[in-house]
Simulated scan of single mutants.
Amino acid sequence: MKKALIVGALAAATIGIAPSANATTPKPGGTCTKAELSQFRQTGAGPVVCQGVRGQAPYTWQGVASVDPVKRAPGSPCTGSPYGVAVSPAGKAMTCAGSMGWR
Rank of each mutant, 00 (worst) to 15 (best):
K2M: 14
P19N: 00
R54W: 15
Y59Q: 01
I17V: 05
Q39W: 07
C96G: 08
G52P: 01
A97T: 12
P82V: 05
L37F: 11
I15H: 08
A23R: 01
G84P: 00
S99C: 12
M100R: 11
G44N: 10
R54P: 04
T33A: 13
G84T: 11
P69Y: 06
V48F: 01
R41I: 00
G75N: 15
K71E: 08
P69R: 06
P28L: 11
S20R: 06
T33I: 02
P19Q: 03
G55R: 03
V53L: 13
I6F: 03
A11Q: 11
T14F: 14
G8N: 10
A12V: 08
W61I: 03
T24P: 00
N22C: 06
A18Q: 09
P26Y: 02
C96T: 08
T95V: 13
S81H: 13
E36Q: 03
S81E: 05
M1G: 15
Q39F: 09
T24G: 00
T79C: 11
I15N: 04
K34Y: 03
C78K: 03
A90P: 01
C78H: 03
T33K: 05
F40L: 14
T60K: 08
T25N: 12
P47Y: 01
S66N: 12
G84C: 01
S76I: 09
A35G: 09
L5H: 11
P26W: 00
V64I: 13
